[in-house]
Design a protein around this nucleic acid. Structure first.
Lengths: 216, 216
DNA sequence: AGAATAATTGAATGAGATTAATTTATTCGG
DNA sequence: CCGAATAAATTAATCTCATTCAATTATTCT
C-alpha cells in the first residue's frame, strides 16, 4: 500500500504537530524521533517530509502551535478579567507561568526554537510570539489608563513584564529556584505578586509626593 | 602512536571545555560535533570519552564553565560598585545581559542544559547558577539596608530580578523584541532601567520625595 | 481507459555518537 | 633493568537516527 485511499487519508501536517505536542508531555524534544512521531500519526517517517522540509521545520511548527495555545489562554484570561486591567495583568502572569509549568518540554521548545527550517531572511516575522507581546502591551496600556505606570513606554514595560514571567518560568524549569523550591506554582504566584506590587507602587497620582510627567 | 608521551600530554578535560566555548562563539551547540571539538583539542573524538561520559556530559561541563564566567563578571561588578548597593544591582543587571548578548550560544546552553549526563538524583546541587542567585540575594539585602524594598523576602526579590534580566536576555536572543529591536544593548539597558525605577519607587518609607542613602 | 500527477512506502545513504579491539606509554614489583 | 599490569589514545566497528531514492499504488485529467 503506497498511496493511501482518500477515505483513509490522514491530515498529516496537523496530526504530526498534535502528536509531537503529546509526545512532549513525556519526554524532552531531543528524545523524540521522527519515527516515533510518524508512528503516533499512523505513517512512516519519510511521509513527514512531504509536509515538512525537515525535522526542524516540524519542530518550528510545534513551536508555533505552542504559542497559539499560550495565546488562547491569554485570550481566556482577558475575557475573564474584562473590567480590571490590573487584575488582567496579574492573572495573565499567573496563567503564563502555569502554562510553562504544565508543558515544560513544549515551553522549552518555544524558547529555544530550532535554528534553520525556513527562510532565514526574516526569521521571526509573523512569529505568534510577537502577537502575545502585542496583547501584553495592550494590557499595560489599559493599566496606564487606570493610573499605573504613568508616562512610560507601554512596549518597554510590556517587554519587561514578559521578561520577568518568562524568566521565572525558565529558571523554574531548569531548577534555578531559591533554596528548596519544591512548590513551583507557589513560587510562580509569589513572583508575579512581587512584580505586581512594584507596579502598584507606581500609582503615584493619589500620593502626595512626586507627580512625574504624564500627558501635557 | 596510541598513548601519547608525558611531554606531549594534553589536559583534555580543560581544553575540551575551553575549545567548545570557543566554538560556541561561531555556531550553535547543535552544530558542534565531538569530532570538531576533538580536532580543536588535538585528539580524536573517542579520546573525549575517557574524560566525559558522553557528549551531554561535556556540554554540562561547558554549561558550568559558562556560569563560572558569569559569576566572575558579577564579582567584578561587585568590586567596582562597592559602596552603592543600588548601583550594584543596576550594574549587575546590565553586565548580565551584556554577557548574554556577547555569548549567545553559550548563554543558551546555560539555560537549556542537556538532560542527563549525571546522577539525576540531585540534578542541580552545586550548580554554579545557584551561586549567582545567592550573590544577587546579597545585593538585594544590601539594597534593603539602604531603604529600598522594605519588608520583602530578599530571596524572592532576587529570584524576581534574576527572572527579569534572564528573561530579557532570552527574549532578545530568540528575537522576541518589541517592534524593530535592532539595538539590543539599548533595549537591555532600558529594561534594566525600567526595573530599577520600579525598585526606586519602593523607597517611600523613609523620605517623602527622595533623599540619598541612610541606614536604620 | 490511459497518461500524468500525487502520496507513501521500504530500501539506501550518510552523519555523528558511542563502543570495541588494538596499540603504545608508563608504572611497579621483582 | 625487565616484564607484567595498567593507562591513554587510536583506528575500526556499531548503532541510531535523519534524510534521500526508487518503487508502488491512488487519484485526477483528458
Amino acid at each position: 500500500m503506497a498511496r493511501p485511499r482518500k477515505d483513509q487519508a490522514l491530515d498529516i501536517p496537523r496530526r504530526a504537530v498534535e502528536e509531537t505536542v503529546r509526545l512532549l508531555a513525556s519526554r524532552g524534544v531531543a528524545e523524540i524521533t521522527l519515527a516515533e512521531v510518524a508512528a503516533a500519526v499512523g505513517c512512516r517517517a519519510p511521509a513527514l517530509y512531504g509536509h515538512f522540509r525537515n525535522r526542524n521545520a516540524l519542530l518550528r511548527a510545534v513551536h508555533d502551535a505552542g504559542f497559539e495555545r499560550l495565546y488562547a489562554e491569554k485570550l481566556a484570561v482577558a475575557a475573564r478579567t474584562d473590567g480590571d486591567a490590573f487584575a488582567r495583568l496579574r492573572e495573565g502572569g499567573i496563567a503564563y507561568v502555569r502554562f510553562a509549568l504544565e508543558n515544560p518540554a513544549l515551553y522549552r521548545l518555544m524558547f529555544d526554537p530550532p535554528a534553520d527550517a525556513g527562510l532565514e531572511d526574516n526569521p521571526f516575522a509573523g512569529d505568534p510570539g510577537r502577537r502575545t507581546l502585542d496583547a501584553l502591551r495592550g494590557a499595560v496600556a489599559a493599566c496606564q489608563a487606570a493610573g499605573y505606570l504613568p508616562g512610560r513606554d507601554p512596549a518597554l514595560v510590556a517587554f519587561t513584564l514578559w521578561s520577568a514571567v518568562h524568566g521565572a518560568a525558565s529558571l523554574m524549569l531548569t531548577g534555578r529556584t531559591p533554596a528548596d523550591g519544591h512548590d513551583h506554582p507557589a513560587l510562580a504566584a509569589a513572583t508575579v505578586d512581587t512584580i505586581m506590587t512594584l507596579i502598584a507602587a507606581t500609582r503615584t497620582e493619589e500620593s502626595p509626593c512626586a507627580r512625574p510627567a504624564d500627558a501635557p
